[in-house]
Computed example of a mutant assay.
Amino acid sequence: MKVSHLTKRENEIMEIFWQSEKPLSSNDICLEAPHISKNTVQAVIRKLLSMNFIEIAGLGYNKNALTREFSPCISQAEYFDNFLVRDTSFELAANFIRRTEDINELEQLEELIRERKEAL
């Protein structure tokens, strides 16, 4: 899947989606970023939907009105990975492995590597 670069405003709203653990409505976005107008939020949501960065996750309530809720279709890591060359991706992974002091993260990486080797 070819991924487009996000504009500053699109990226700002995607950051809010990536940080959230639950689907968000346009009103939720406005509460998280009060400096962005509701019209701008709604326009960016429409654009992100058309770009397949977000999807409709369900319906929720905003006061007494039904509202659509959205969730990301692409993770932040997947987005940035599209713009890295293979050497840079390897260097980032190697640097992370060298610097981390979390045994659980290293064990998770080992399991991912083991699963990928078996799939190949």
Rank of each mutant, 00 (worst) to 15 (best):
N52F: 08
K22H: 12
E15C: 06
S50H: 14
E118W: 06
L84I: 02
L92S: 04
I54L: 03
K47W: 07
Q42C: 06
I103E: 13
N27Q: 14
A43V: 13
F83M: 00
S37T: 14
M51D: 07
K8E: 11
N52S: 12
V3Y: 04
E107H: 07
A93Q: 07
Q108K: 15
D81E: 11
T40W: 08
F70K: 04
F53E: 00
N11I: 01
N82C: 10
S4D: 15
E101P: 01
S71R: 13
I74R: 02
C73M: 06
Y61V: 07
P34K: 04
R114A: 12
S26K: 06
I13V: 06
A43D: 05
W18L: 02
E15I: 02
R46E: 13
I56M: 12
E105Y: 12
T67M: 09
E10L: 04
R68L: 15
E78M: 02
S25G: 07
I97G: 01
K63N: 15
N64T: 10
S75Y: 09
E78G: 08
F90I: 05
I13R: 01
I113R: 14
I103H: 13
A93I: 04
P72T: 00
A119Q: 13
N104F: 08
I97P: 00
T88R: 05
S75F: 09
E21S: 14
V3I: 11
L120W: 12
L24K: 06
A77F: 03
Y79H: 06
Q19L: 14
T88I: 08
T100E: 09
S25I: 08
I113F: 10
L48Y: 00
I103K: 11
L31K: 15
P23N: 06
T7N: 04
A65H: 12
L59E: 13
R98G: 09
E10F: 03
C73Y: 03
N95D: 09
F80D: 07
E78Y: 04
I29M: 10
E107L: 08
H5R: 11
D87E: 10
R68V: 02
K22A: 11
E32G: 14
L120C: 11
K38T: 11
D87I: 07
K117A: 05
F90R: 06
I45A: 03
K47Y: 08
I13E: 04
K47I: 11
I74Q: 03
L112T: 08
L120H: 14
L48M: 09
M51W: 00
V41I: 13
N39L: 12
E32Y: 13
F96P: 00
N11Y: 04
S26L: 07
T88F: 12
F83Q: 07
E111T: 14
K47R: 15
K22R: 13
L92D: 04
S20P: 06
E21Q: 10
E107V: 01
F17V: 01
K117F: 09
F83D: 03
I36T: 04
E110D: 09
L31V: 12
E78P: 02
R86D: 14
V41T: 05
A94E: 12
F17E: 01
R98W: 07
P34T: 07
E55F: 05
K47H: 04
R86H: 10
D87C: 03
E15Q: 08
M51L: 12
I29C: 04
Q76P: 01
